[in-house]
Design a protein around this nucleic acid. Structure first.
Lengths: 164, 164
DNA sequence: GCAATTTAGTTCGTGCGCTAAAGAATGTCA
DNA sequence: TGACATTCTTTAGCGCACGAACTAAATTGC
């Protein structure tokens, strides 16, 4: 305790600890079950929306197109999903589950750390809701910063780039 | 809104949105000021603790040794910090600020998004404290999962690995 | 019809993050 | 003193994440 930290620095440390813990948990998942957190998370979204285009998948999973391509590559190599181009619009790629993917989700561990789940389960409903609300609130505030680069459902209205 | 999400899935989405927003902000910092979020964050810790060993720095910054090496490489290339080996114990590496590093910190923008800062500034003290407490609480719960792999100040007491 | 634009995905380059293993310096102990 | 363990840092290998640039396909305008 050499110095006082400002409120802002404390928030940053807290966020850092959260992402680090999530990352460590992801590596633990990979060692134990052969699948990482982002892969498992993506697979769940595929399960919920399949068959689904990569674009819709990226928006639903709050992930960039480029990142999703890599995750889908690995999921495909592992045999958990299939990709094929849409017949009517051959630009879009349709993602669907395989049997192995379904099977994995049935036996897959929770994405959340088990300890975290236990702790949350012990809380009152009000406290649980409060935590989620705070997290969503923080997320919303942080996303306010760069509105254009976020998931846009309406990609119109940016013709201001015409120079030549 | 095709399906209901479980509480757990909602928490995961919230965490995902937070880390994504932080990442996007980091890229924005890099484009505008030539330094990323982790680099700036690390530089602040160096400023607070200098001169400091890389190990102490990693623990203070909640970051792995290997990751810190890369960040320090980039900070050194940019001329913001210096590294040299300790005279008395030549295993440890001592990190210190340069003039350029001090200068950067003086003019550097907040690590937090400005919008987030504004929103937080508008709140009551109680609400601000509540948010920080919730974030720290979540961080602590998530870290419970893998105690050994976290920053250990006392690396003793793990002789249980003697098999042969 | 066919150029110009828009849209969907992928590839490329860079940086962050982890673990595991390697290097280098120090300490221990017979 | 000389093998062995311990400590501190870096390297290697992989995966995630972003933006920018690229390819291919569809749409629009003329």
């Amino acid at each position: 305790m050499p110095h006082h930290l400002t409120y802002e620095e404390q928030v940053i440390v807290a966020l850092r600890r959260i992402t680090r813990a999530a990352d460590i948990h992801s590596h633990l998942l990979q060692r134990k079950f052969g699948i990482t957190g982002p892969q498992l998370s993506t697979l769940r979204v595929v399960h919920r929306l399949q068959p689904v285009s990569t674009g819709a998948l990226a928006r639903a999973a709050c992930i960039g197109y480029a990142t999703l391509t890599g995750v889908l590559n690995r999921l495909e190599v592992h045999g958990y999903v299939t990709r094929h181009r849409d017949r009517s619009d051959r630009r879009t790629v349709i993602v669907a589950m395989t049997k192995a993917g379904d099977e994995l989700l049935k036996t897959a561990p929770s994405l959340l750390q088990t300890r975290l789940r236990e702790e949350l389960g012990r809380m009152t409903e009000a406290k649980r809701t409060g935590i989620l609300d705070t997290l969503l609130h923080v997320a919303t505030m942080m996303e306010l910063e760069s509105p254009e680069s976020l998931i846009e459902e309406a990609p119109a209205a940016r013709a201001a780039k015409k120079l030549k």
